[in-house]
Design a protein around this nucleic acid. Structure first.
Length: 491
RNA sequence: GCCCUCAUCGUCUAGCCUGGUAAGGACACCGCCCUUUCAAGGCGGCGGCAGCGGUUCAAAUCCGCUUGAGGGCGCCA
């Protein structure tokens, strides 16, 4: 590997960034950084019908969230721009002409309808469809005659005879008989180049040394190699990394839950955890006991020859485990910020209501919840009582815990003792409960469980005394009263 | 259908290239301990080299076939 490594991630802005794309981006980024090379971001927006600006924004945001900073590309500048393919039409035109001049490309006037018809017929006869070179037979005069009145045309690449072989860094030699490759379209009738063509021109002009992409591109590679050769470009190194599949072993998609990076961000997954998890899919450092890798550790160790060749199944359980681990290690301030994002997004809190006091309350909430969170939004999903005084009582729990004989009496005693407390601390509240249980001659749990249900509505959550302190004396007292009323109503 | 790729516990993987340790770890699951619920933590358990054939004293590891899985076969990328 001589010269500076230049790797790129080239998403098409036709939707959000999905986990597969994120992982491809991660490997490119890690590979570039590990080799002290350059990481380039290029937007492949040649599909005018499906590309959107919003999608570009989402992809950029996702990448930034994951921390994959690019050295060249949108917002970063660079000497090989523009980095949007839609802005490179002039460049493609030049190379298209080159192919035309050298006889590697030809005009095709077949309409999509005609093509579909012939394809179906061929398939029905049990044969494989390849473009039948219908328009290759046209003489230059005929072509000119059709072009002049402005008839819709595309440009096709003329596939030479023979076999095309390339080296995949993970698999070694891969060969295709050129008969498998038909004369594919390189310029669409709307004036945009197709993926295979634009990709080759850009990778060459951007001096990409390593093309790291999903292995669904393996069958595109021989076509691209042929294009590199026809254009007298240097062929880069290729590494086709395995895809990420859903539990049914098919390509990860909406059917498998949400595959978008932003979904996980909005759920309160930490980017560090996501990067770590994604990295461990198809990659292992060789250190047998090691599962947890910081971004730096990944950069430090990443190597393509430690990437597996087989696809990996996305496992939410393991992501959850990893995320909860990162959450437990994260600072309360960091977690509170994420929680606040979620609260405002969910409409539970308005931006102007985020006072320093509220922020500090959020920090207390995450500090008691961080031991038991798979992701931050779980607070909103399962511990809404922190932010909602009108929380409901879980019917089964209410029945079992609060409707038990003597509970009202015990709750009243607790409330009265709590009321007298000058300092509402963990020690003080626990002391109250312990003493009361002794004098009443009941187990402490006979007070603890009803109290928990009274102030939160559910039977699971943080340790009771930390919960009480976070909620604060006033709210605890009024919540006990509220529970008492509910019990009264049920009797 | 044709072409390409892949194949170690349910899942992610180490080991394979440079044949020779009871095939190691993690998640999940199950049990026990701890405990104020849920977690976390500790201890233990379950569970795998897809199959067949070959090479070899010896095969997860090398070779072949079969099977299975994934991907591609667009004026999508």
């Amino acid at each position: 590997m001589d010269g500076t490594v230049r790797a790129r991630f080239a998403p098409s802005p036709t939707g959000f960034l999905h986990l597969g794309g994120a992982r491809t981006s991660l490997f490119n980024w890690a590979f570039a950084r590990n080799n002290k090379g350059t990481f380039i971001l290029r937007i492949e927006d040649t599909d005018m019908a499906r590309s959107t600006d919003e999608s570009v924004d989402v992809i950029l945001d996702s990448l930034k969230w994951l921390g994959f900073t690019w050295d060249e590309g949108p917002g970063a500048g660079g000497d090989c721009g523009p980095y949007f393919q839609s802005e490179r039409r002039g460049i493609y035109k030049e190379y298209l002409q080159k192919l035309l001049d050298k006889g590697h490309a030809y005009y095709c006037f077949c309409t999509p309808e005609e093509l579909a018809e012939r394809r179906e017929k061929t398939l029905a006869e049990g044969n494989n469809w390849r473009y039948d070179r219908h328009c290759l037979r046209l003489s230059p005069e005929e072509v000119q005659g059709l072009l002049t009145p402005g008839k819709k045309a595309v440009l096709r690449f003329r596939i030479p005879e023979g076999t095309t072989t390339f080296i995949d860094m993970l698999r070694g030699d891969i060969s295709f008989h050129n008969t498998e490759l038909d004369d594919f379209v390189i310029l669409k009738s709307d004036g945009m180049p197709t993926y295979n063509f634009a990709c080759v021109v850009d990778d060459a002009l951007m001096h990409i040394t390593h093309v790291i992409r999903g292995d669904d591109h393996i069958s595109n590679t021989p076509r691209q190699v042929l294009l590199y050769r026809a254009l007298d470009f240097c062929v880069p190194e290729f590494a086709h990394i395995p895809m990420i599949l859903g539990h049914d072993k098919t390509r990860l998609s909406k059917r498998h839950g949400s595959p978008s990076v932003t979904y996980y961000r909005d759920k309160g997954y930490l980017p560090e955890a996501m990067v770590n998890y994604l990295a461990r899919l198809s990659w292992a450092s060789g250190e047998e006991e090691k599962e947890i890798f910081s971004r730096e550790e990944i950069l430090d160790r990443f190597s393509l020859d430690q990437v597996t060749k087989h696809s990996a199944v996305f496992d939410l359980d393991k992501l959850n485990w990893m995320n909860s681990l990162y959450i437990r290690q994260a600072s309360n301030a960091y977690l509170a910020e994420i929680l606040i994002q979620i609260l405002t997004q969910e409409g539970l809190k308005k931006v102007e209501e985020i006072t320093p006091e509220f922020r500090s309350y959020c920090e207390q909430v995450v500090s008691v919840m961080k031991e038991r969170m798979k992701y931050v939004a779980l607070i909103v999903e399962e511990a809404r009582y922190f932010f909602d005084d009108t929380y409901a009582f879980d019917p089964a729990v209410f029945e079992k815990i609060l409707l038990e004989e003597g509970v009202s009496q015990r709750l009243k005693l607790c409330r009265d003792e709590f009321h007298k407390l000058p300092a509402f601390t963990m020690e003080a509240t626990e002391d109250v409960v312990r003493k009361l249980s002794e004098s009443l001659n009941v187990k402490a749990t006979k007070l603890i469980h009803p109290l928990r249900v009274a102030v939160s509505g559910v039977k699971v959550g943080p340790g009771l005394f930390e919960l009480l302190v976070v909620l604060g004396k006033e709210r605890v007292l009024s919540r006990i009263d509220r529970a008492l009323q509910a019990i009264q109503g049920k009797k």
